[in-house]
């Protein structure tokens, strides 16, 4: 029973993660795309934790969700915000 609930949770997280990635692909506003990237990174950190890799989960949460987002936002601020066609 518990295992089934956990499996369903993992599948739901997978769907959320891929949906976040697709959102990052189709958003025209680059800041929104970067926030979707941070969301995907956070879910990846959760995956690492569920796979019993707490060291990697810590690194992914602090780098993927915090530092990478900050670097992207700084770079977008220096360039153009919207993705022109």
């Amino acid at each position: 029973m518990l295992a089934t609930v956990q499996n369903c949770m993992v599948i739901a997280l997978t769907v959320l993660m891929l949906a976040g990635a697709v959102c990052a692909c189709i958003f025209k506003d680059l800041i929104s795309a970067v926030i979707a990237t941070a969301f995907v990174s956070l879910l990846a950190a959760l995956f690492f934790f569920l796979l019993h890799a707490p060291d990697v989960a810590m690194a992914e949460a602090s780098i993927g969700a915090a530092l990478t987002t900050a670097i992207f936002v700084i770079a977008i601020k220096k360039t153009a915000r919207s993705e022109e066609e």
Binding site: S62, I63, L67, A70
Partner: peptide, 8 residues
């Protein structure tokens, strides 16, 4: 990890 947290 600690270094990245210090940097943030």
């Amino acid at each position: 990890q600690g270094g990245v947290i210090v940097a943030s």
